[in-house]
Design a protein around this nucleic acid. Structure first.
Lengths: 191, 191
DNA sequence: TAGGTTTCTTACCATAGGTCAATTTTTTCC
DNA sequence: GGAAAAAATTGACCTATGGTAAGAAACCTA
């Protein structure tokens, strides 16, 4: 929790009351590998800040295949924002990939911080802008790059993530099968 | 411009001063079909609100192929947010697809509205949240749907856009070639 | 409304990546 | 440390979509 607060403090002034509020609505938790924090089809109340380890969010399509939307490592937030924003049931599943430490927030409560402490508006707006930009880039990459190119870029962008993930997690993020990823890795190692 | 202000007023209170500020930094323009508002590689200073017609943003890859990131019709914003946010040269081109009316803003000036009139922070945060959600959905659709399914969904989501666009605009949004889209349309009409 | 340009369609072939199944390797956990 | 489970690899084959090129249709614009 200290990490999160000091991260916020780098960008805005955090009053003692705001800090206390954040503490009051959060709970630090250790989660084990394989634990499911949000399950597709259920009500989503929580959002998570990762302080150690790695989580991912994914959806399961009509053929039972998984598609990874996001990985979250230290200092990232993860939840099902589609469900939270639209007030719908979860379309995503959030799964813990390694033993991790997270801070759990009630999403509705957390949202109130913008009302109580308006300086958080600008903090959050900035975060969302950054997020939008990274999503724009991801979409453009998906449209214009081949599978091997996307994999190379992924390794650059997330150099540390392979230690946490299985190959099929990465494949399902890149939009290919694990078999294809395996072949791409073989080709790459030949060079 | 009235449309934009009344749109904002639906969500927050807009002081007369804020309204005046918006007027002072904007310019309503008519643009013709084919006009380029932002060109890949150039400095991006402006952001556009569409009041009539249709624009799109796209990038050109190393093989010269276009990939559409976004269409913008009435009441949508469009620019190269990657460039604006990262203070880089444009990676996108913004092109006018039909005769359109737009309101042009200097992006830096517009950003100041959040400082001068903090109630716009929450307005903008809400917009960004919605945008993030729609981008999440687009990524998931791209990962899990076939080309014909993506096309069907596109027609549902943008029922009016076909009147403005050429088929290859849509194809490049869906991540397929115009020839493939043509074949998909033939199959669809057979049913 | 003619002539040129752009867009769309179609046919044929090519290919990236998918599917399935068998095998090997790695991880898990008692 | 070793059995069982999970993950990764590999090979043979398949399929959705891409590439190319040519002709048809649509659309500007004079």
């Amino acid at each position: 929790m200290k990490e999160l607060i000091s991260k916020i403090k780098k960008r805005i002034h955090v009053q003692a009351e705001a800090e206390a509020f954040l503490y009051s609505i959060s709970k630090e938790k250790k989660v084990t590998k394989g634990e499911i924090l949000i399950r597709q089809g259920q009500v989503v109340k929580k959002t998570f800040f990762v302080t150690a380890g790695c989580l991912r969010s994914y959806c399961i399509d009509k053929n039972g295949k998984e598609h990874t939307l996001q990985f979250a490592i230290k200092d990232w937030w993860i939840s099902d924002y589609i469900a939270i924003h639209n007030n719908e049931l979860a379309t995503l599943t959030v799964e813990c990939l390694t033993p991790s430490t997270i801070i759990e927030f009630n999403a509705r409560e957390l949202d109130k911080i913008h009302t109580y402490f308006p300086e958080f508006e600008s903090y959050q707006r900035h975060n969302l802008e950054r997020h939008v930009v990274s999503l724009h880039k991801r979409i453009l990459n998906q449209l214009q790059l081949s599978a091997p190119e996307r994999y190379d870029l992924f390794l650059q962008q997330y150099p540390d993530i392979e230690q946490y993930t299985r190959n099929y997690h990465i494949a399902s993020y890149l939009g290919i099968t694990q078999e294809s990823l395996s072949r791409i890795r073989v080709e790459k190692s030949k060079k």
